[in-house]
Design a protein around this nucleic acid. Structure first.
Length: 1042
RNA sequence: GCCCGGGUGGUGGAAUGGUAGACACGCAGGACUUAAAAUCCUGUGGCCGUUGAGGCCGUACGGGUUCGAGUCCCGUUCCGGGCACCA
């Protein structure tokens, strides 16, 4: 019987379901292994072949670990809140819950088709009230805590209140807003309830605040920085603007140092760790206060990482938004400064970034005193200094910083060298730390290492500054003005947010009539008319109308899988302490600073509260690469193509007949003129589209003024005859011979678009074409199936200019798979044709899991052939069972055991592509040996089970087993079978491989040397020269140095 | 600009400092077949030479360390990703 994947796979996927083979329980004395895939957002397009890469890889590991005796948790769920479902709802009027449900159903079906061993009894969905109840609960915890730097952890806000009552906040070292005032206990006691609540918001780990946000008018919502790409929304590509709005924030900055330190203890790819470090952006430096001349008590406070350069500070720069700007600007400079500040404010973020090179700024007229030198230095305002970073002001050291240098050059400010090693300061800044200081007062002659502590000591003694660590990371905006997300468990009373009591959770999303913002610009939830919090019959408070962002539900979900149906807790203690944390986490690298950083933040917080057992939620992270699509691209002619075509293909070859050509010049300057004219004749030619035939009149006038007759050629008729240029030449010939003043066709062919085969496009300017994505199902080997293409709306009125072989060719591009690029390959179709096992192994065989690579179905036949050959070791023609219980030979055992060894080792280092090749090699060897022995083939089935579970299960049962192969213990290799009597040593002469010798496996070093030196090929190279040295690496190689 | 990756046959990719190109795809030739498909066999980095000799070159480029370098070090270059007036 032939290998029939479809029959086999159906049989066993049903059987697994029936016997609940993938059900996991905590009551096990086996060691635990928790492997987790980043859960997907269930989009309407379904899974494409790129999605399962990580799922398959993790499934193989999950199955392997299970066979190794671990109790494996391998769950799957859905990150089901999100913008696309809401956009779909707005367009189609379908409730997001309905379309989400439908998409999830499809995703699950597709995943089951692949044979993934997920325990579906643990499936979770972030949009399920039973789930988001706990997302809301965690939010309430964040609201009720603050971060205390002395304890270096989150503490209850009640602890802060106690301290405020006793001693005010002067000695409280905690994460808080930058402008939090110092208050005494007396002041605290004098606060009203409202004032107290507002004051506490400055400490809470989540809090509402006015902040600049990325507002997307088209989507009617706020986007986070990582949802904005190049100034437009990641989803939909709509423009985004900066706007000041009241938003909930997460005080992730409190955890900056912890998140940075925590990276040391986790096994994550360095690239991801680097990105997180970069994002957190720790920089060590100093805060320095520069007194403002003539304003006693006012200081310009700056942060610098190069305190050692302070003697080179020849001016100061404030951000336009800096509060000192209006206070210190002199009357003479007032209007200029005001004008600049206003102008800077009007510029969008995008403009500012796009004009990086331009130096702008203005002098305030005020001076600051350099605390070290006592020099008065001018204070400028410029928008290259950012209000949001550091103190919003800098000391400018043009000799060391290129931006300061540019500014100094533009404004004629002095550039003072401060290190004897600085070079070419007239051409650029030199940021070196080498050498010894000059022009630098108390640090003259010192090195960098000596200077910094001395300066810091001096500053601290004088009370003018101190060492300081600064972070780039900002608090994370946590609210979105949209419908399909978790509601905040918050109501507003007297302008103050209060938490709902826990008994009110979950606060369920209300039904609304439309999923759009209200007419007054409030979020969609404001449409829910009677949706109010009513603690007593006489009270009614508005809820918070924003919803939580996509990352809320994904920042803790791995705990819910441990205990998904628990109504008493986010996760039961027992399950929590059994599974503890994720052992292997698999997902794309695009989540480096979004999901993965927020998740770590929440986890550190939950850890502080003693709610979870580990500081870091995922010990090991693996990034799977992206499987890209191979898009097919066709070239569509633009109007300028026809002119070039006419010139190159028609006029040039026939020029001898027609006489010299004249192409009218200065076309841009004149209002309109024709395209060609014959110098020796009175005929002019104009190429124009039928759709633009209203232009003809002005062309006629131009021709008349020139004294020419006019031939109008429509692009449509050129397109229709595109494969026969001689017809067009004929038409021109007729026009030349005729004496009519004006020629054009009365009827124009119904051709609207002309596509040009790729190999022909090189002859024309690139501007002649637009590039269009073509559905890849219409293309094979870059050749378009023209007949089938014409049935598509896109090609309805198209004409194709084919190549010399009569074929129409496309070009291709490797890019992300997406519906809009028509390059999506659906796994269902591949599975239908080749089977799930083949699909799984092929995806692994494609290359390392971490690498991105284009999907290419060509190689899949190789894997298919391998599976067929493997099958034929067990089952012969006519469904004959070939496996016999016969003692295996030495050679067969060696082949098997070396495969066991390689596959096991490669699994442990997560090299799954090479595992597949080891299977191929073993199969090829066993076929060559005509091996049908049970002692060899049974372990092979067990090895194969993680990779091709259906096929393995089938063969396992045919071998007489009744229970699942998933629980068949992983075989161990026996070194004895790997040993051989004779070993082959490659022999190098001076490091170049020249031949091989075969010696006894137990041969001594001397024997090997002797054997090597006796070889003809060695003697040839050694000749009469003496052998200087022989290196023998046991089991490896012999190298003879002559 | 800064920070990470990465450059190996026609292609995807192998290679704890130890025979570069495993395993596949593709291609070429052959077997089976009326034919095709399927299957099987052989060859396949380049150049020169042989036609059962062999030699030279070869892992982006240039140096270095080493008995030995795709692998380690220094420099250059190209490609990909991330961050960015971040003081």
């Amino acid at each position: 019987m032939e290998y029939e994947p479809r029959t086999i796979e159906k049989r066993w996927s049903d059987w697994w379901k029936k016997h609940q083979v993938y059900r996991v329980v905590e009551t096990s004395d086996k060691p635990k292994f928790y492997i987790l895939n980043m859960f997907p957002y269930p989009s309407g397009a379904g899974l494409h072949v790129g999605h399962p890469l990580g799922y398959i890889a993790s499934d193989i590991i999950a199955r392997y670990k299970r066979q190794c005796g671990f109790n494996v948790l391998n769950p799957m769920g859905f990150d089901a809140f999100g913008l696309p479902a809401e956009q779909y709802a707005i367009e189609m009027g379908i409730h997001p819950a309905v379309s989400t449900e439908e998409n999830i159903r499809r995703y699950r079906q597709q995943m089951e088709n692949i044979g993934l061993s997920f325990d579906w009894s643990r499936e979770i969905r972030t949009c399920d009230p039973k789930y988001y109840r706990w997302t809301q609960w965690i939010f309430t915890l964040l609201f009720e805590h603050y971060y205390d730097y002395d304890a270096d952890k989150a503490l209850p806000i009640t602890a802060l209140v106690e301290r405020l009552e006793k001693e005010g906040n002067a000695r409280v070292r905690a994460a808080c807003n930058a402008d939090t005032p110092l208050i005494t206990a007396q002041e605290w006691h004098r606060f009203s309830e409202k004032e107290k609540q507002l004051f506490l918001l400055q400490y809470r780990l989540t809090f509402p605040e006015e902040s600049f946000v990325n507002w997307c008018p088209a989507l009617g919502t706020v986007l986070s920085n990582d949802e904005v790409k190049d100034g437009v929304s990641e989803r939909g590509g709509y423009p985004v603007e900066r706007r000041r709005m009241k938003q909930w924030s997460m005080r992730i900055t409190a955890y900056a140092e912890r998140l940075l330190r925590g990276l040391e203890e986790i096994d994550w790819p360095e690239a991801i760790k680097d990105q997180q470090r970069n994002w957190i952006g720790r920089s060590q430096g100093a805060l320095v206060r520069f007194p403002v001349e003539g304003h006693s008590g006012r200081f310009v406070e700056v942060f610098t990482t190069r305190i050692d350069t302070i003697y080179g500070a020849t001016f100061m720069v404030l951000a336009p938004e800096h509060e000192l700007v209006s206070a210190i600007t002199t009357p003479a400079q007032w209007s200029e400064v005001q004008g600049y500040v206003k102008w800077a404010a009007s510029r969008s973020e995008r403009e500012r970034i796009s004009e990086v090179k331009r130096v702008t700024g203005v002098n305030t007229g005020a001076f600051a005193i350099n605390p070290f030198s006592g020099n008065a230095i001018p204070i400028y305002v410029a928008d290259y200094v950012l209000a949001g970073y550091g103190t919003g002001a800098i000391m400018a050291v043009p000799s060391g910083d290129q931006r300061d240098w540019n500014f100094a050059k533009a404004f004629g400010l002095p550039i003072v060298p401060i290190l004897d090693s600085q070079k070419n300061l007239d051409q650029a800044a030199d940021p070196t730390k080498e050498g010894r200081y000059i022009n630098s007062g108390i640090i003259n002659g010192l090195t960098y290492e000596e200077a910094v502590p001395k300066l810091l000591r001096w500053l601290e003694e004088k009370g003018l500054g101190k060492a300081r660590i600064q972070y780039k990371i900002r608090n994370a905006i946590f609210s979105r003005q949209r419908y399909w997300g978790e509601p905040f468990p918050v109501y507003w009373k007297d302008g103050v947010p209060y938490l709902l009591p826990e008994s009110e959770l979950p606060l369920v999303l209300p039904e609304i009539d439309k999923y759009l913002p209200t007419e007054t610009g409030e979020p969609p939830l404001a449409r829910a008319q009677h949706w109010r919090y009513r603690p007593t019959p006489n009270e009614a408070y508005e809820y918070e109308y924003s919803t939580m962002p996509g990352w809320a539900g994904s920042s803790w979900y791995w705990y819910r899988y441990m205990d998904p149906h628990n109504d008493e807790a986010f996760c039961g203690r027992e399950a929590l302490h059994y599974w503890r944390c994720v052992d292997w986490y698999i997902g794309g690298p695009e989540h480096a600073v979004g999901h993965l950083l927020y998740s770590r933040f929440w986890n550190h917080f939950l850890y502080d509260l003693g709610l979870v057992p580990e500081r870091e939620f995922a010990k090991k992270l693996i990034n799977q690469g992206m499987i890209q699509g191979r898009s097919s691209i066709a070239f569509r002619a633009k109007e300028s193509f026809y002119e070039e075509y006419l010139w190159v293909k028609v006029l040039k070859p026939y020029l001898d007949n027609f006489g010299p050509m004249h192409i009218p010049k200065n076309r841009a300057e004149e209002s309109f003129t024709y395209d060609f004219a014959f110098a020796s004749n009175d005929l002019a030619i104009e190429v124009v589209s039928w759709k633009k035939s209203d232009k003809i009149e002005s062309v006629c006038q131009a021709a008349e003024a020139d004294g020419k007759r006019l031939l109008v050629l429509f692009t449509e008729e050129l397109a229709a005859d595109i494969n026969s240029p001689e017809k067009i030449a004929q038409r021109i010939q007729q026009a030349l011979e005729s004496r009519e003043p004006f020629f054009m066709s009365r009827t124009v062919p119904e051709v609207e678009q002309l596509f040009v085969s790729f190999e022909l496009t090189a002859k024309y300017s690139p501007e002649c074409f637009s590039r269009l994505h073509v559905d890849i199902s219409l293309v094979e080997d870059d050749v378009l199936d023209v007949a089938r293409a014409c049935e598509r709306p896109m090609f309805q009125k198209a004409k194709f200019k084919v190549g010399p072989d009569g074929q129409f060719r496309c070009t291709y591009e490797i890019e992300k798979m997406s519906k809009s690029k028509y390059n999506v390959v659906n796994p269902d179709e591949v599975i239908e044709q080749y089977g799930a096992d083949c699909f799984r192994m092929y995806e692994m065989f494609l290359g390392p899991v971490e690498a991105s690579k284009p999907w290419d179905t060509k190689g899949i036949t190789g894997v298919q052939g391998f599976l067929k050959r493997l099958w034929s070791l067990y089952v012969g023609q006519g469904n004959i069972w070939l496996v016999q219980d016969v003692d295996p030979s030495r050679q067969e055992l060696c082949a098997l055991h070396s495969a066991i060894k390689k596959i096991t080792e490669d699994l442990n280092r997560f090299s799954l592509n090479t595992c597949v090749s080891h299977f191929m090699t073993l199969t090829n060897e066993l076929r060559a040996l005509k091996c049908h022995k049970k002692a060899i083939l049974e372990p092979l089935v067990v090895l194969l089970a993680p990779f091709a579970p259906h096929l393995a299960e089938e063969l396992w049962h045919r071998l007489g087993h009744e229970t699942t192969v998933c629980d068949a213990p992983w075989p161990a290799w026996d070194e004895r079978h790997l040993e051989t009597d004779r070993v082959v040593y490659p022999v190098q002469i001076n490091g170049k491989h020249r031949g091989n010798i075969e010696v006894d496996a137990r041969a001594s070093r001397e024997e090997i040397e002797r054997t090597a030196l006796q070889q003809d090929f060695v003697l040839r190279y050694v000749g009469n020269g003496s052998v200087k040295k022989i290196i023998v690496v046991p089991g490896r190689i012999v190298n003879i140095v002559v």
